[in-house]
Amino acid sequence: MRRSLSALLVSAGVLSAFVYGFAQHRLSAVSRATAAPELLIALPRFAQVLMAGGDRYLAANLAGFRVLVADTGRMSAEDYKVQAKLQRDIAWFNPAHEDNYYIAAAMLPWNGQVDAAQYVLRKASEARTFDWYPLFHYGFLFYHFRKDPATGAEWLLKAVPRVTSQQDEWALQNVAALWIEKGYQTANAAGMVEAMAANSPRGAFRNYLQVRAKRLRDLAALQSAVTLFRERYGKRVDKLDDLVSSGLMAELPKDPLGVGFGLDASGWPILSSTPQDVK
């Protein structure tokens, strides 16, 4: 009886091995689609917390691991939508999650997910009151992606009280000043840069801001003169010297940064970026 049972088991084993080998041989010839498991699905938040044993911070880390190991070289637009959903969830589970806001700032807006990036960064800036980087990235999204430098500058200035380095403070204020120049009417921008200078410690950087403010004041004066020229003569200004020859200005202002002022294609005064732009 024992010999019959042993023989039966051996036969079954041989048969199983044969079937397995035959199946492997047949399947090896079948073409298979490449799997793309990067970010196939984002579960509802309650399900993610449930799978993490009720620990929302563990749920955040598990979702964060999925984002970290994803092969971005193979990701499609749909994958980035799922990633955006996951990163929103992480920010909701644990707003202070550092890796999450870094990845959101570096990847999401460049792949069509600006709203999600702003959500993550806003959550991080509120939770990490000691950290100025989320506010910087949040402001940059307004400047670069929303084309709203004025709002971007406001968020940069909100980051200034959080910095611990004088150099970082000056850098943020300098960038904010540049964005203010692009985002506000010239006279208002001058006033804001003057206020930044007044709130800065005495020294080279304060002097630099005062110079930028004076440059904006001079530009505002040129723009006012051009407006009067158009009203009086009913034509555009072809060159800035027309303001002097018409008697609207005694002389043209000298750019304190040594570059100069120019006219855009419509004949409106602008800050020159290079000496060759001066007209």
Rank of each mutant, 00 (worst) to 15 (best):
R2D: 14
A7R: 14
L9N: 04
V10Q: 13
A12F: 12
G21H: 09
Q24T: 15
L27A: 09
S28F: 11
S28G: 10
A33R: 11
T34G: 14
L43N: 06
A47Q: 10
L50I: 08
R56E: 15
Y57R: 12
L58T: 15
A60N: 04
F65R: 09
R66I: 11
V69Y: 06
A70N: 00
T72W: 05
R74H: 08
A77Q: 12
E78I: 11
D79N: 13
A84V: 08
K85D: 13
R88A: 14
I90S: 04
P95A: 15
A104K: 12
G112Q: 01
V114K: 12
V114E: 02
A116Y: 04
R122Y: 07
S125N: 05
E126R: 09
A127G: 07
D131V: 01
Y133M: 13
P134K: 04
Y143W: 15
R146G: 13
K147N: 15
D148Q: 03
A153L: 02
V160D: 05
P161W: 08
T164F: 07
S165C: 13
Q167F: 10
Q167D: 14
Q167N: 13
Q167E: 15
E169C: 11
W170M: 08
L172E: 06
V175S: 09
A176F: 02
I180H: 04
K182R: 15
K182H: 08
K182G: 12
Y184W: 02
N188F: 09
A189I: 05
G191S: 02
M196P: 02
A197D: 01
S200F: 04
R202D: 13
G203Q: 06
F205S: 11
N207W: 03
Q210T: 14
Q210P: 04
K214Q: 07
K214G: 03
R215D: 01
A220E: 00
Q223H: 01
L228H: 09
E231C: 12
R236Y: 06
V237R: 02
D255A: 00
A265N: 06
A265Q: 04
S266P: 05
P269K: 00
P269N: 02
S272P: 04
S273V: 11
T274S: 13
V278I: 06
